[in-house]
């Protein structure tokens, strides 16, 4: 009866990371900003959350502070790019480096245990034990609910006039400027929002694994890229509006990726090889896509 354990773990972890994948997908696809900051805002959010919770702050406050920290990291990346004209990737790398040191400073150690403290999963713990001793059904339901809420709000927000203006700034900055849209402000707000979302992923991950570690963000970028690529491959852009296509691809891709990884590890894939395998997987999917429909998905104004 252990064949479904990887499925269970894959879905739970997939849901947790889907917030970060959604964040990466939105910045990459809708804002045309391949934002590396997520790799830093995840541990940053988790550290702020952990230290506040440990020092006795109320749970909602700790979560809010984590979102704020992630948002600031994103805003900083955007500011470095739009104000100092530094390349998008380099701006992200600089903020990742800043976050790393900040995490160590904030936590005062390289990790903090959270097992005895309030958890986001507390309300569903009893239910979970009552339903099944194998399945983390309570966590999955709670995470799905949060994700649905979050994706719903994002979808609605992106279809309002403000959301359309934000997407115009990302899709064609020069055109946006000619319409009187303030492109830098929109990019700063956009990245602040996506990185707050990534920080939330960090909070969930810390809660789920019971500790915060300064290295917990490492590899997220590759994971997000893999998940997004898989999701975009599985869905048809033609049937959905572009924002819903990106949102759905991020969520579905994240779930599929984590379930596949969970099974691969179960069937003997050494976790040390995981990054290599993921990178090759991304390349295969991308190569397949390019050979099939050219650059349909990656058209950007030259």
């Amino acid at each position: 009866m252990t064949w479904f354990v990887p499925l269970d773990i894959g879905i739970t972890v997939g849901l947790i990371f889907s917030f970060a994948v959604v964040a990466f997908g939105l910045s990459f696809r809708l804002l045309n900003f391949p934002d590396l900051t997520v790799e830093g805002s995840i541990p940053l959010g988790a550290s702020v959350f952990a230290i506040l919770l440990k020092s006795g702050a109320p749970f909602p406050l700790a979560v809010l502070a984590a979102l704020l920290a992630g948002g600031l990291a994103g805003a900083l990346t955007a500011i470095i790019h739009v104000r100092f004209r530094l390349n998008k990737f380099l701006a992200g790398i600089i903020v990742i480096a800043i976050s790393y040191s900040l995490c160590l400073r904030i936590m005062g150690a390289s990790n903090i245990g959270l097992l005895q403290l309030t958890s986001i999963f507390d309300p569903v713990q009893g239910f979970e034990r009552a339903v099944s001793e194998y399945f983390q059904l309570g966590k999955i339901l709670l995470l799905s609910l949060l994700l649905l809420l979050c994706v719903g709000v994002l979808f609605f927000g992106l279809s309002t006039l403000k959301g359309i203006r934000l997407r115009t700034a990302g899709s064609n900055p020069e055109f946006a400027r000619s319409l009187g849209i303030n492109v830098p402000t929109n990019i700063i707000i956009g990245l602040a929002l996506t990185n707050a979302l990534a920080a939330f992923s960090g909070v969930l991950l810390a809660t789920y694994q019971g500790f915060t570690d300064v290295n917990m963000g490492a590899g997220t970028l590759l994971l997000a890229l893999a998940a997004l690529t898989i999701g975009e491959r599985l869905l048809s852009e033609r049937r959905l509006s572009f924002p819903s296509f990106v949102l759905a691809a991020a969520v579905i891709g994240s779930l599929v990726y984590q379930v596949v990884v969970a099974y691969a590890v179960r069937f003997g894939l050494a976790s040390t090889d995981l990054k290599l395998v993921t990178a090759v997987l991304v390349l295969i999917v991308v190569a397949f896509r390019v050979s099939q429909d050219g650059e349909l998905l990656s058209e950007t104004p030259k």
Binding site: I164, R167, T168, S171, F175, S178, P301
Partner: peptide, 23 residues
């Protein structure tokens, strides 16, 4: 209002026609 020489830059490519006109 300036209409770009390169027609590919005359609108936001990932927005629908409706959204381009709306914005």
């Amino acid at each position: 209002f300036y209409v770009h020489q390169n027609p590919l830059l005359s609108a936001a490519p990932t927005l629908t026609l409706y959204e381009n006109l709306l914005v």
